[in-house]
Lab assay of single mutants.
Amino acid sequence: MPGGGPEMDDYMETLKDEEDALWENVECNRHMLSRYINPAKLTPYLRQCKVIDEQDEDEVLNAPMLPSKINRAGRLLDILHTKGQRGYVVFLESLEFYYPELYKLVTGKEPTRRFSTIVVEEGHEGLTHFLMNEVIKLQQQMKAKDLQRCELLARLRQLEDEKKQMTLTRVELLTFQERYYKMKEERDSYNDELVKVKDDNYNLAMRYAQLSEEKNMAVMRSRDLQLEIDQLKHRLNKMEEECKLERNQSLKLKNDIENRPKKEQVLELERENEMLKTKNQELQSIIQAGKRSLPDSDKAILDILEHDRKEALEDRQELVNRIYNLQEEARQAEELRDKYLEEKEDLELKCSTLGKDCEMYKHRMNTVMLQLEEVERERDQAFHSRDEAQTQYSQCLIEKDKYRKQIRELEEKNDEMRIEMVRREACIVNLESKLRRLSKDSNNLDQSLPRNLPVTIISQDFGDASPRTNGQEADDSSTSEESPEDSKYFLPYHPPQRRMNLKGIQLQRAKS
């Protein structure tokens, strides 16, 4: 015994090295194993092979420090690593049964499904019991997946119906949107047309105001020219009257000059006056001389005659003075006559000038009245044309509004008919989907599995289990394997941990 101590140590070291070499393959693929292994699927088989106990299973599945599946799978690998070579062998058998691809990844061999460990530990009855539990578990999982698949199909059909409904609603909204954009385009076109009409109206108003201003300026210029013409006519008439007055005065002077006595007659009258003065002096001298030589009687007679002569001279002087006064009065009367005649001529000139001015103003008033009548006639014609244009424009607008209203009513009726057609199509689609759903539900009910399987069917299934373990590994792997896509769409199922009653199965096998 003492001599065998070193050999035992060498043997233990060799086993430990082999164990480390075995687990080295697992550690190399630890990331892939932790990512894809579900500990809840492996722990029943590991407990059946007595590699882990209930406490280890509870620690792996329910520990609060292991929230994710990767953490739980890593903890399970750590626990199996502590179990040595047996933990490695049982772990590979569980991978061979549940995850053939991972088994091939770790060992590089094809899975054979021999279950040597569980046969050694529990015997064939334990293997049968384990396989029966796994089959029931798989059936329950398949039923749950079928239910989930039916629910998802129903949800899918519902979503398809909602999608069709949303599509129809979208078509309806597109119809309304198209109608909205069309009405918006019509409104924009009408606004552009309105702005264009306003611009045209403004341009016409500006043109009309400009023409009116030009016409008023032309009328004012015409009036100024007419006033200048009238003033020139007035000056012409005044000059004609002055010329006529000057002509009359010149004719009067000419007549006075023609009626003036001649120079010879004046000289002859002056000679006669001198001769008479000479004779008068001679007679006076004779009379003076006679007075001195005459007697007293003759002197008395001469005195009487002288007195008579003096009286006659006085009378004559009075007559001469009277004649002079009369001549002066006649001259003054002639001057007054000439003055009055001049005033008369001036008044006649003024009267004729005023008459011509009156005629001029009368003509001017007639011209202004004619212009006013023409302006009123043009204004009435413009008003009439404007009223006709406004009436025609309003009539066109009324007809346009009428046609637009008819078009809008027809478009609304068309839209309502399209919407009604879309709604009826939606109703038809809904009815078809309901009919299809009812038909599929009836087919699913016919094809669904019963909840409680008979014992004979279970025994028959387990009677055929042994050949399947040898020759149909691919079928078992397809039913027991969970793909990543299934984990996305289906909830994980945790079967209840219970042991099955095998009395009925044993009785059935005894009868057979």
Rank of each mutant, 00 (worst) to 15 (best):
G4W: 12
G4L: 12
G4V: 11
P6I: 12
E7F: 06
E7Q: 12
E7S: 12
E7V: 12
M8I: 13
M8D: 12
M8C: 09
M8E: 13
D10C: 11
Y11F: 13
M12D: 13
M12Q: 05
T14N: 07
L15W: 11
L15N: 09
L15H: 08
L15R: 10
L15V: 09
D17Q: 08
D17Y: 13
E18K: 13
E18Y: 05
E18A: 11
E19D: 13
E19G: 10
D20C: 08
A21N: 02
L22Q: 04
L22Y: 08
L22S: 11
W23S: 02
W23R: 05
E24M: 00
E24C: 12
E24P: 07
N25L: 02
N25M: 07
V26P: 06
V26M: 03
V26S: 00
V26A: 03
E27S: 00
E27R: 01
C28H: 04
N29I: 03
N29Y: 03
N29D: 01
R30F: 01
R30T: 00
H31D: 08
M32I: 03
L33V: 11
L33R: 01
S34G: 04
S34H: 02
S34Q: 04
S34I: 04
S34W: 02
S34C: 13
S34Y: 02
R35P: 04
Y36T: 10
Y36W: 07
I37N: 03
I37V: 08
I37W: 02
N38K: 02
N38W: 03
N38V: 01
N38M: 05
P39D: 02
A40D: 07
K41V: 04
K41S: 08
K41D: 05
K41P: 02
K41L: 01
L42Q: 08
L42A: 03
L42D: 04
T43Y: 00
T43P: 09
T43N: 06
P44T: 08
P44W: 01
L46H: 05
Q48V: 13
C49T: 12
C49I: 08
C49D: 05
K50N: 14
K50I: 14
K50H: 11
V51Q: 08
D53S: 09
D53W: 10
D53Q: 09
E54F: 10
E54C: 02
Q55N: 11
Q55E: 12
Q55A: 11
D56V: 04
D56A: 08
D56P: 09
E57L: 02
E57D: 06
E57R: 03
E57T: 04
D58N: 13
D58K: 12
D58S: 13
E59G: 00
V60Y: 00
V60N: 01
L61W: 00
N62G: 02
N62M: 03
N62F: 12
N62Y: 15
A63S: 12
P64G: 04
P64E: 04
P64Y: 09
M65N: 07
M65K: 03
M65S: 06
L66M: 03
L66Y: 14
P67G: 09
P67V: 14
S68K: 05
K69R: 15
K69Q: 05
K69T: 05
K69E: 02
K69H: 04
I70N: 05
N71S: 13
N71Y: 04
R72T: 05
R72D: 04
R72E: 01
A73Q: 02
A73E: 03
G74R: 03
R75I: 01
R75Q: 06
R75Y: 00
R75G: 02
L77I: 08
L77F: 06
L77K: 03
L77T: 02
L77E: 01
L77A: 01
D78F: 04
D78E: 04
D78N: 00
I79E: 00
I79H: 01
I79M: 09
L80K: 03
L80D: 01
H81C: 10
H81A: 06
T82A: 08
T82H: 11
T82Y: 12
T82Q: 02
K83E: 01
G84R: 02
G84Y: 02
G84W: 03
Q85P: 11
Q85K: 13
R86Q: 06
R86T: 14
R86A: 15
R86C: 11
G87K: 06
G87M: 06
G87N: 00
G87E: 08
Y88C: 07
Y88E: 03
V89L: 00
V89K: 05
V90L: 06
F91D: 00
F91C: 01
F91R: 00
L92S: 14
E93G: 07
L95V: 00
L95E: 01
L95G: 09
E96D: 05
E96C: 06
E96F: 00
E96I: 14
P100Y: 00
P100K: 00
P100Q: 10
E101K: 00
E101D: 03
Y103F: 08
K104D: 15
K104L: 00
L105R: 01
V106R: 00
V106M: 05
T107N: 02
T107L: 00
G108R: 03
E110Q: 09
E110C: 10
E110L: 14
E110A: 04
P111D: 01
T112R: 11
T112D: 15
R113E: 15
R113S: 15
R114V: 14
F115A: 15
F115N: 15
F115G: 07
F115H: 15
T117V: 01
T117R: 15
T117L: 05
I118E: 10
I118F: 00
I118R: 14
V119S: 12
V119F: 15
E121V: 08
E122V: 05
E122I: 06
G123W: 15
G123P: 15
G123M: 15
H124L: 07
H124T: 13
E125N: 07
E125I: 07
G126I: 14
G126L: 14
G126C: 14
G126Q: 15
L127S: 13
L127F: 13
T128Q: 07
T128D: 15
H129W: 15
H129C: 05
H129Q: 03
F130H: 15
F130M: 15
L131T: 00
L131M: 05
L131W: 01
L131P: 02
M132I: 07
M132L: 10
M132G: 13
M132P: 03
N133C: 15
E134R: 14
E134G: 15
V135G: 10
V135A: 02
I136A: 14
I136P: 05
I136H: 02
I136L: 08
K137Y: 15
K137A: 14
K137N: 11
K137I: 04
K137P: 08
L138Y: 00
L138M: 14
Q139A: 15
Q139M: 13
Q140P: 10
Q140Y: 15
M142N: 13
M142W: 11
K143F: 04
A144Y: 11
K145Q: 09
D146L: 13
